[in-house]
Nucleic acid binder design. Structure first.
Lengths: 241, 241
DNA sequence: GTCATATTTAACCGCCGGTAATAATTTTAC
DNA sequence: GTAAAATTATTACCGGCGGTTAAATATGAC
């Protein structure tokens, strides 16, 4: 009831009676709450999934376990996520999106001629990768499972499309950056495919390598200096100015 | 019976009667055959496992399927391999061993002062990796599954020890090469951990990246030139002479 | 002939991903 | 305020797979 009074103020000025308006609004308010609750439930499931997957690994983590951790029942999870794979990939998507956005920023700044040297471009790209890795190490590491099971090809259409599309977006942004940097005289005349694969592949490979070695929970101390070595090596070999 | 007559010739000159000798020899001949057959059966299981894992991926490949492909029954497989994981890892071990041996060769040649430049050392290391990858691409790719499931830690003791030990051996050889190359004035004074991780990590990351992209069965044509770029970049950044 | 060894067959267990049917709860309508 | 409708949770289940067991069969050793 309190809701009603409070929210009446927000009615858009349509030609509808006050009663109707109230009811209309009441309805949407409740729907909004439901939407929020639904959203929170999904978030809770994702949180539980992340925790469980990280603690036990993909195969050992069971849906029952995740459901318990999320304090919902298993069928509830299956209402929002078609399969275990899809649930898993739903964890990865925000990370790719984040990388995509940040790499896009670099691309835009490059387009706006805001860079003064190719070295700065490379350093910024590494910063994006590393920050992303540091900020959410566990999720980041799950990318390791990428193809392996051939999981990508068993996802439901929507998830698969979304995943592949976002992945491509990242790669394309990387190539575009390389292209522009060449255009602006920052990089040597090397195929932009090779450049972008070099940067991403080297980063990725080294992060994985460090993760293989015994690491007591926190990030391996060798990682950062090794990445700096790689960064400088790349700058030395492809940057002109 | 033919066996008997034929093999009598090979008796070692012990003080035993002819009959005993014949029987002794017959026994070992048959035992040898059995050993061969056993060995062949194991090889057949490994072949079937490799084929099936490669065709279906780790999770989708079932033990029944592998048994069928190997033309043995499931319990027979379990007589030689304790778990699915162990069977899987048995496929990887020869590859690591191969890499270990070849990297060791480089190390020995370096010790014997047979190298004239640091660039040659780097090129040889890349050659080892690449040949190994090219020679057995599918097995090589299975390394992707490395930690992922945390599988390594669930293997039976023998397999796990063997696997970890061989892996360490490779890494140590890599570091040792870096150390020696520095000693001989080939490489700059950079921590050998960073150098070896750079080389292996970059190679590994780029191979994986290429494998992710659509590749119609054969090796991605971008792979080789990208690896050459990396190779030259590494040479440029850490080699003195 | 009899014991030891190795393989197959066939049935089985437990666990897990996923589902169907049903119950409980909340919203809507009057 | 109450009944209908819709939404969400619960229970119990299915099928498949990793892995095991036990009995049957074959082969060679003595």
């Amino acid at each position: 009831m309190v809701f009603l009074l409070l929210t009446v103020k927000e009615i858009t000025g349509r030609n509808i009676g006050r009663n109707m308006a109230v009811m209309q609004n009441h309805k949407t308010v409740i729907q909004n709450r439901k939407k929020r609750e639904k959203n929170r439930r999904i978030q809770e499931i994702l949180r539980a999934a992340k925790k469980t997957f990280f603690a036990k690994g993909y195969s050992k983590a069971t849906m029952d376990e995740i459901a318990l951790e999320a304090e919902v029942s298993k069928p509830t999870i299956y209402q929002y996520f078609d399969t275990k794979d899809e649930l898993f990939f739903s964890l990865l998507i925000p990370v790719i999106e984040d990388i995509g956005n940040q790499v896009n920023d670099i691309n835009l700044r490059l387009e706006a001629l805001e860079y003064e040297s190719g070295a700065d471009v490379i350093r910024d790209i590494f910063k994006v990768y590393y920050n992303c890795f540091e900020q959410d190490t566990d999720t980041f590491m799950f990318f390791t499972i990428f193809q392996q099971i051939g999981m990508v090809y068993e996802l439901n259409d929507t998830t698969r499309e979304s995943f592949i599309e976002k992945g491509k977006y990242c790669f394309n942004q990387g190539r575009e950056i390389a292209r522009r940097a060449k255009e602006q005289g920052f990089f040597k005349d090397i195929d932009e495919f090779y450049i972008s694969d070099f940067v991403w592949g080297a980063f990725w490979g080294i992060v994985q390598l460090q993760q293989m070695k015994p690491h007591n929970g926190d990030v391996n101390p060798h990682l950062k200096p090794t990445l700096e070595l790689v960064e400088n090596s790349i700058i030395g070999s492809i940057v002109i100015k």
